[in-house]
Nucleic acid binder design. Structure first.
Lengths: 119, 119
DNA sequence: CGGCCTTGTAACGCCCCCCGATATACCTTC
DNA sequence: GAAGGTATATCGGGGGGCGTTACAAGGCCG
């Protein structure tokens, strides 16, 4: 998994950063994190969790049965924390670059810094 | 296009925010923007540009022939600027959420705010 | 008792991205 | 002046994450 994380995956890791949660609970947590913008469906969620477990970014902390339903609790691994951290940095740099250029544009500036500069 | 932009597309829009550029030039500009992390290949670039033009986020400003080679200059449209702006906001919120949780975790805090804490 | 809620499973298609190969016309090199 | 490299754009194949839909199974509520 050297591909950059997509939004659903990123938010799942973020949700798990605080404390372990079970799959279905993540649906609500991710929705809360994203102000309701990202509404995960089961197919998306469990597919992503399986991939994350395969990649070693997340593991199963425990399973319990509540009211006859299985609850499987997922937890962020140290590798998952490292990945979330570096992905966050990557996104932050992109946000800063875009913000700078949008601001520059808004003020009508006409002096590009990076453009075509270094071959 | 209500799907979130992926990184290559996002960086292309960011590169175009400063001034119109031709396709091949964008390869270098996106590389510079991302500190060399994102090295677009022609197939990726032009595919993305075609999709962006179809979506109305980018249009062709002009074409010129230099040294017998065609240069097609692409420009950010108002819709493209709006999209880039809102995408940037979205990313910023994600970055802030992840940063907060990672910091909370680093300091060993055990008081989640959003999480279904009372389970 | 019947229907809804909760939690997890399974199968299928789409779309974006990645890559490699190709076309062409200059410019350099010998 | 022919051969090869460079700049610029095009085309087609393939893969992986995500969305979607349907389904299973057992409690709770009316």
């Amino acid at each position: 998994m050297d591909t950059p994380l997509r939004e659903p995956t990123f938010l799942i890791l973020t949700a798990l950063a605080t404390e372990p949660m079970h799959g279905y609970g993540l649906i609500g947590e991710v929705a809360a994190l994203s102000d309701g913008r990202v509404a995960l469906r089961p197919g998306t969620l469990y597919g992503a969790l399986d991939r994350l477990v395969d990649a070693g970014l997340v593991d199963v902390e425990r399973e319990e049965v509540v009211d006859g339903r299985l609850r499987r609790y997922y937890r962020l691994t140290p590798a998952g924390e490292a990945t979330l951290s570096s992905e966050t940095d990557r996104l932050r740099r992109n946000v800063e670059a875009a913000t700078a250029r949008l601001r520059e544009r808004a003020t009508g500036a006409t002096a590009p810094r990076l453009a075509g500069g270094l071959a």
